[in-house]
């Protein structure tokens, strides 16, 4: 009964600042076009944007996948490395390893993970230094569907 409605997949290239945000912008437009609830679109947009930015700034490239289900949106951001050295620290608001040039551009506020977590109903990160990072996030489309 709960069949997946559709999915969107985007390839995110490392250091590609010129097109940064384009995947999340397109995801937002697609979700709006398909009549997904405004509040859900807002949350998914924020999560995707932060995940996309992280991949551009810190990874060697990755994939951003969004699945639309009748009761929820699933977001999966997977990159090919290099992984996060200290995940616990990366989750702390204000902690950042952004290089100076990125900070000059207003990146590296240390709010990427906190923003993603705050807008997710389910949020988990798997990372292995030297390998890669996998972020899984779920946003429920209705409060009734939340599992306690």
């Amino acid at each position: 009964m709960w069949e997946e409605k559709f999915r969107l997949v985007y390839r995110v290239k490392p250091m590609d600042l010129a097109s940064a945000g384009s995947a999340s912008s397109q995801i937002k437009v697609e979700l709006q076009r398909n009549g997904i609830e405004e509040d859900v679109v807002r949350k998914v947009g924020i999560i995707c944007f932060e995940a996309e930015m992280n991949m551009i700034l810190y990874s060697t490239g990755g994939k951003l996948k969004v699945e639309v289900w009748p009761d929820r949106i699933e977001i999966l951001a997977e990159d090919d490395g290099p992984g996060i050295e200290d995940l616990q620290k990366a989750m702390e608001p204000g902690y950042s390893t952004a290089p100076p040039w990125a900070q000059d551009y207003g990146f590296g506020a240390g709010m990427g993970f906190p923003n993603m977590k705050q807008n997710s109903d389910v949020f988990d990160v798997e990372t292995k230094p030297g390998e890669g990072t996998r972020i899984h996030s779920v946003v429920y489309r209705s409060k009734d569907n939340e599992t306690p």
Partner: peptide
């Protein structure tokens, strides 16, 4: 001027 702060 911090993008993630604006997003939040």
């Amino acid at each position: 001027d911090l993008l993630s702060d604006v997003i939040a």
